[in-house]
Simulated assay, not measured.
Amino acid sequence: MHTLKFLFVGFLLLVFNASCSNETTSDEDITENILDTSKVFEAFDVAYGDAERQKFDIYLPANRTLATKTVILIHGGGWTSGSKADMNAFKLLITQQFSDIAVVNMNYRLANANNKPYPMQIEDITNLVAFLRENKTKYSISEDIGFIGISAGAHLSLLWSYAFDTNNKVDMVCSIVGPTNLTDPEYLNNTNPELQNLLDLFGIDPTTEFLEEVSPFHQVTATAPPTILFYGGKDPLIPISQGTDLRDKLQSVNVTHEFTLYDNAGHGWTGLELLDTWSKLNIFMETHL
Rank of each mutant, 00 (worst) to 15 (best):
K5I: 14
L7N: 15
V9Y: 10
F11I: 15
L14D: 12
S21P: 00
S26K: 11
E28W: 06
I30A: 00
N33W: 14
D36C: 01
V40L: 03
E42H: 09
A43V: 13
A43F: 03
F44C: 11
F44R: 13
V46N: 06
V46S: 02
A47Y: 02
G49E: 10
K55A: 09
I58A: 03
Y59M: 01
N63I: 00
N63T: 01
N63G: 01
L66K: 09
L66G: 09
L66T: 12
L73T: 00
H75G: 07
G76E: 01
G78W: 02
G82V: 06
D86T: 11
D86L: 06
N88R: 14
K91G: 13
L92S: 14
T95I: 10
Q97G: 07
F98N: 05
I101W: 08
A102P: 03
V103S: 02
N105H: 04
M106Q: 10
N107K: 08
P117Y: 12
Y118H: 15
M120P: 00
M120A: 15
E123T: 13
E123K: 12
D124W: 09
V129N: 07
A130Y: 05
L132E: 06
L132I: 11
R133K: 13
E134P: 00
N135W: 00
T137G: 02
K138H: 05
K138S: 12
I141R: 01
I141D: 02
S142F: 06
S142E: 08
E143I: 09
E143F: 04
G146D: 06
F147W: 09
I148V: 15
G149C: 08
A152V: 09
A154M: 04
L159P: 01
Y162E: 02
Y162L: 04
D165F: 03
D165W: 04
N167H: 07
K169W: 00
V170F: 04
D171Q: 12
V173M: 02
S175E: 08
G178H: 10
T183S: 09
D184I: 10
D184W: 02
L188F: 03
N189P: 03
N189C: 05
T191A: 11
P193A: 06
N197I: 05
L198H: 07
F202A: 08
T207S: 15
T207K: 05
T208Q: 10
T208I: 14
E209H: 07
E209V: 08
V214R: 04
S215G: 06
P216R: 03
H218D: 02
H218N: 13
H218Q: 07
Q219S: 11
V220S: 04
T221G: 04
A222E: 11
A222C: 01
P225I: 08
P226W: 01
T227E: 07
G232N: 02
D235R: 04
P236G: 05
I240G: 00
Q242C: 06
Q242P: 10
R247H: 15
R247L: 13
V253L: 13
V253R: 01
V255N: 12
H257L: 14
F259D: 11
F259L: 13
F259C: 05
Y262A: 12
Y262N: 10
A265Q: 11
G266W: 14
H267K: 11
L272Q: 11
L272W: 06
L272S: 12
E273A: 09
L274P: 07
W278H: 03
S279G: 01
I283V: 09
I283N: 04
E286P: 01
T287A: 02
